[in-house]
Simulated scan of single mutants.
Amino acid sequence: MNDLTAIIAGRGVLPVHLARTLAAQGAPFLVAEIEGAGFAASAEPGWTVEPFALERLALLFDMLHDRGVTRVVLAGGLTRPRLEPERIDPKTAQLLPRILPALGQGDDATLRAVIALFEDEGLTVVGADAVAPDLLPAPGVQTYVQPSQADMGDADRAARIVATLGAADVGQGAVVAQGLCLAVETLPGTDAMLDWVAQVAGACRPDPNGARGVFYKAPKPEQDRRVDLPAIGPATVEAAHRAGLAGIVIEAGGVMILDAEATRARADALDLFLWVRSP
């Protein structure tokens, strides 16, 4: 691989995983860190890290071209930005009419607009799984704990709910117990949803001794899978355990597992199942 790859790095461990993968492959790369993302603290010797501000997006494009970047991968979390007008440079100001309308819509619309900007600059946008295919696990139950028939029924119900949510560009996850939807993922994200379930949802289960429920996660039906592909990790397992759930179900081929070995080990330790479910 001779193409120079730029990792557009937001928060979290995914950009670090991609950088380590490319380094292990001997593939040339640089990291463009979104201001405040915190990537630099995890950077290893020899990595090139260039910070940038969203208000100066056009200057990022100039830097990528100057360095000879041919493809980019967008990775990591990003809070919906509040742009500071006084920081916007003239070239970036010309891009705003293409971005601002999308910011008022869902995440998918915003990300599609961002992808279009990179592509118009002649850059190839690839997904994180194209750089690190190991992030997508094979179908099957990953843990020694297996889902019950009731859990499988709850997963089916949750999958239908998430498909409906995703079609409206709302969220990528839901919690279902005993056939009832206890919570759905919205803008605050997975952690906020599972924290809410931990606080109040215990009283919502009709049978206190029945199925404890599942957390189901999948990409939106029409989303561009090169960006915002959902992911889980050890912290997700911890949050599902605090919520009193029996396990986690993810769509095969559509949800990444970050630090897969640690994630499976933590699920085993907490007696939760982790099921990679075929659509």
Rank of each mutant, 00 (worst) to 15 (best):
M1I: 11
I8H: 12
G10D: 08
G12T: 03
L18F: 13
R20N: 10
L22V: 02
A24N: 01
Q25F: 10
F29N: 07
V31P: 04
I34H: 10
G36C: 00
G38W: 07
A41I: 08
A41S: 15
P45S: 15
E50S: 07
E50M: 13
E50Q: 10
P51V: 01
F52E: 08
L54P: 03
E55H: 06
E55G: 02
R56M: 07
M63I: 01
M63Y: 03
M63V: 04
H65G: 04
V69I: 09
R71Q: 15
L74E: 00
L74Y: 07
G76Y: 01
P85L: 13
E86G: 12
L96H: 11
P101G: 04
A102E: 08
A102P: 01
L103P: 01
G104F: 11
Q105H: 12
D108N: 14
T110N: 13
L111A: 14
L111M: 15
L111P: 11
V114M: 11
I115H: 00
L117F: 02
L117D: 06
F118A: 04
D120C: 00
T124R: 11
V126L: 09
G127V: 03
A128T: 09
A130H: 07
V131W: 03
A132H: 07
L136Y: 11
P137D: 11
G140I: 11
V145Y: 05
P147V: 12
D154V: 06
D156S: 08
R157L: 01
R157D: 00
A158G: 13
T164M: 12
V170N: 05
G173E: 14
A174P: 07
V175W: 02
A177T: 02
A177I: 01
A177E: 00
C181Y: 01
A183D: 12
T190I: 02
D191V: 02
M193N: 05
V197A: 01
R205M: 03
D207G: 10
P208M: 03
R212G: 14
V214I: 15
F215S: 02
Y216V: 14
A218I: 01
E222H: 13
E222V: 07
Q223V: 05
D224N: 14
A231S: 15
A235L: 09
A235N: 13
V237D: 07
E238R: 01
A240M: 13
R242C: 04
A243N: 11
G244V: 06
G247S: 13
I248H: 03
I250C: 06
E251G: 02
L258M: 10
L258P: 00
D259V: 10
A262F: 06
T263L: 15
T263P: 14
A265L: 14
L272M: 11
L274S: 05
W275E: 03
W275N: 00
R277Y: 05
